[in-house]
C-alpha cells in the first residue's frame, strides 16, 4: 500500500467581534492609556471588566478607573513564545492585580529571565505605541519599583468609542483522509473510480468512507465502478462562490456511477446547462494532473429510465 496521504489545511478568518458597552469602554480606555474596571453591587472592582458578575450573575455597568500599576499574583516563564503571543522573545505570563482592582488580568511580563520574576512583584503597563482599542494596546507589563500609578481622574468616557474588534485567527492542521479515502484518491490518480463493498449488506460505496454507515462495519473489498453513470438529480448553480474557480451557471449533479449503490456529486459539462436532465448518461472527463474528474459529460446513450435510478435519488 502506498504512503499515507496528507496535506496542510489552514483554517483562518478575521472574526469581527462587537463588544457591548463594558468591553467597549475598557478597550477604548486602553486606546487612551487608561485602565478601566467595573464595580459590582457588593463593591468589588473587576479588572478586566466583565458585563456580568461572576458571583451573582447581575449585570454590571459601573465603570471605574484603576491604576496602570499592580502586583503579580502568579506567573509562568515562557522561554519559547508561540505565534500570536504578545512578545517575540522569552517572557513571563502573569496574572496581575492592578492597584484598585480585586481581580487579576492575564498578560505578558517583559523580564530578563525567570529569576527576575516572582509572585508579589510590582509591575506596570507598557503601552503599545500604536493603539487601536484592543487588549494588545497593552504591549506587556514591565517591572516597576514604585507606588501605585496615578489615575487620570477622567470620566472613563471618550470620543469615538471602539464598537468592535477584528480578531484574526489562524490554525494550521494536517489533514489525512484515512485508509479508505486514501485508496480511493490514489485510484483516481490512475483515472479509475474504485469504491468499497460492505461485507454485510453488499452495497458498494463510492467514495468509500471507511465504514458502511448502515451496518457500522469496515468496507474493504475494492470494486471498480463506472466510468459511465446516470444523473439522478441536480441543481443549476447561478451564484459564484468566492473560493471557487467555476464559471456560472453550471450544473451540480448527483451521479450514480454504474455499479455503485449511491450517487456521488460532480459537475456536468459538455452540454448547455439548461439541457441537463435527470436520467442523463454521463462519463468522467479528466484533465492532466487532476486529482479527480474535472467534470462529467454526456455519453450520448439514451437516458436512463426513472425506475432504474429512483432508488439512488
Amino acid at each position: 500500500m502506498s504512503a499515507v496521504l496528507k496535506a496542510p489545511v489552514t483554517v483562518e478568518f478575521p472574526f469581527t467581534r462587537s463588544l457591548g458597552p463594558v468591553q467597549s469602554a475598557f478597550l477604548t480606555g486602553l486606546r487612551e492609556r487608561v485602565v478601566l474596571g467595573v464595580r459590582t453591587g457588593d463593591g468589588r472592582t473587576l479588572v478586566p471588566p466583565v458585563e456580568y458578575d461572576p458571583v451573582t450573575a447581575e449585570e454590571i455597568r459601573d465603570v471605574v478607573e484603576v491604576a496602570p500599576t499592580g502586583t503579580v499574583t502568579t506567573w509562568a516563564w515562557n522561554h519559547a513564545p508561540r505565534r500570536g503571543q504578545p512578545l517575540a522573545g522569552p517572557f513571563a505570563w502573569v496574572l496581575v492585580r492592578l492597584d484598585g482592582a480585586d481581580t487579576a488580568l492575564l498578560h505578558a511580563l517583559d523580564a530578563p529571565g525567570p529569576d527576575a520574576v516572582h509572585t508579589g512583584m510590582r509591575v506596570r503597563v507598557r503601552w503599545a505605541e500604536e493603539r487601536t482599542g484592543a487588549i494588545t494596546d497593552i504591549a506587556c507589563f514591565e517591572p516597576y519599583d514604585g507606588e501605585a500609578g496615578q489615575l487620570t481622574g477622567g470620566t472613563g468616557e471618550f470620543e469615538n468609542p471602539v464598537g468592535g474588534i477584528v480578531a484574526p485567527a489562524r490554525l494550521d492542521y494536517t489533514y489525512s483522509p484515512g485508509r479508505a479515502q486514501t485508496a480511493y484518491i490514489n485510484a483516481l490518480a490512475d483515472r479509475r473510480t474504485v469504491g468499497e463493498r460492505c461485507p454485510s449488506c453488499r452495497k458498494v460505496y463510492v467514495p468509500p468512507r471507511g465504514a458502511c454507515p448502515t451496518c457500522g462495519v469496515a468496507t474493504e473489498e475494492r470494486v471498480e465502478v463506472g466510468p459511465g453513470g446516470t444523473v439522478t438529480t441536480f441543481c443549476i448553480v447561478n451564484i459564484k462562490a468566492k473560493n471557487l474557480d467555476i464559471e456560472v451557471p453550471y450544473v451540480y449533479a448527483h451521479i450514480a456511477l454504474d455499479g455503485a449503490d449511491l450517487a456521488l456529486h460532480g459537475r456536468i459539462g459538455g452540454i448547455p446547462y439548461d439541457q441537463v436532465r435527470m436520467g442523463l448518461r454521463v462519463e468522467p472527463v479528466w484533465t492532466e494532473g487532476g486529482r479527480y474528474p474535472d467534470h462529467y459529460r454526456p455519453t450520448g446513450e439514451p437516458d436512463g429510465d426513472y425506475d432504474m435510478y429512483k432508488e439512488l435519488l
Binding site: 505565534r83 505570563w93 492575564l106
Partner: peptide
Amino acid sequence: DPYYVAPLWPDSVAL
C-alpha cells in the same frame, strides 16, 4: 474569552 484573552494566544501549558 474571545475579547480579552484569546487575542494573546496563551496556550494550554502556559495557563
